[in-house]
Design a protein around this nucleic acid. Structure first.
Lengths: 154, 154
DNA sequence: CGAAACAGGACCATTCAGGTCTTTAATTAG
DNA sequence: CTAATTAAAGACCTGAATGGTCCTGTTTCG
């Protein structure tokens, strides 16, 4: 149902959380904070680093920190970095589909794609910050082996 | 890359094409028109029928026709029918994620979800109709085994 | 010199969407 | 009344892609 990839989801959460810390933060630390498994956090961070969202510092006492403020990062840019081009369909740029379909709708998809893209551009990570406490999640939950029961609400 | 499911894609193409025909159209006929394999067309049509987008007539001389005009069908409604609820993430409705993540972003995702949804609501199938001829697709291509090379522009 | 931590890539496994097939029921034509 | 046509429904299989893990190398600090 038009869903975001898990990695992109993580990326946004990680960036927001990273923005709340000060100083450099290691990936294991971020894993503990977010509940996302360490290797995955590391992977996401690497991508974010490559795209200039975070600055990395190698070696002992190294870690990551934001490259710029959350207000300067749009949801669209993060998704694009992690998942690639934001587009609902393969028909991008007014070209004909590379499927053999004679859909004839060609350029029409572009309307949708750009609409979605600009919608996402308008939302900054800053606006994703939690406002009020909304999580009635019991604080005792064991973050280490959080079971990750990602069950989609179909 | 936030992509639409193939079925939803087909559904839109099929509806638009169906709107261009007059009288009832059989699924094999629609398959020929769109280039989508027959069984898949039939499957999509069944879903669309169940959701009231098309009217079906069984038996000999049967087929499908639009239940209402293309202008009265939003892209959002078609996607919702085929793929289910339009939402980028599992966190819908301000509830906490059912993952063990302490993301704390809870309600924030809702902003994105509703933004996307309303964007898609604003686009009708009528506006997806091809305006000018845009397909330089060679007419000799073999539609039967169209390879469907959906290669994402990463 | 050794430990800590990022960098980069390869790799495996699971999931799920896409697609096919079979059977059943309805409607029309002859 | 019978036969042919076509939609309805659902089971099932296949394959691609995402998600996740691990390994090796390199840098930096104590």
């Amino acid at each position: 149902m038009l869903k975001l990839s898990r990695l992109a989801d993580y990326a946004i959460v990680i960036l927001v959380k990273l923005g709340e810390q000060d100083g450099v933060v290691t990936s294991p630390a971020l894993a503990a904070i977010t509940g996302v498994p360490e290797p995955t956090v590391a992977k996401v961070l690497k991508v974010l680093s490559a795209h200039g969202f975070v600055l990395s510092q190698r070696g002992a006492k190294g870690g990551y920190r934001l490259a710029r403020s959350l207000a300067d990062m749009s949801v669209a840019s993060v998704i694009a970095a992690v998942d690639g081009q934001i587009a609902l369909t393969a028909c991008v740029g007014g070209r004909e589909c590379d499927t053999g379909l004679s859909c004839g709708l060609c350029g029409s998809w572009d309307v949708i794609n750009t609409a979605i893209r600009s919608t996402l551009e308008g939302i900054s990570l800053e606006s994703m910050r939690p406002k009020e406490a909304c999580s009635p999640v019991p604080p005792q939950i064991n973050m280490l082996n959080a079971t990750h029961t990602v069950r989609e609400g179909a």
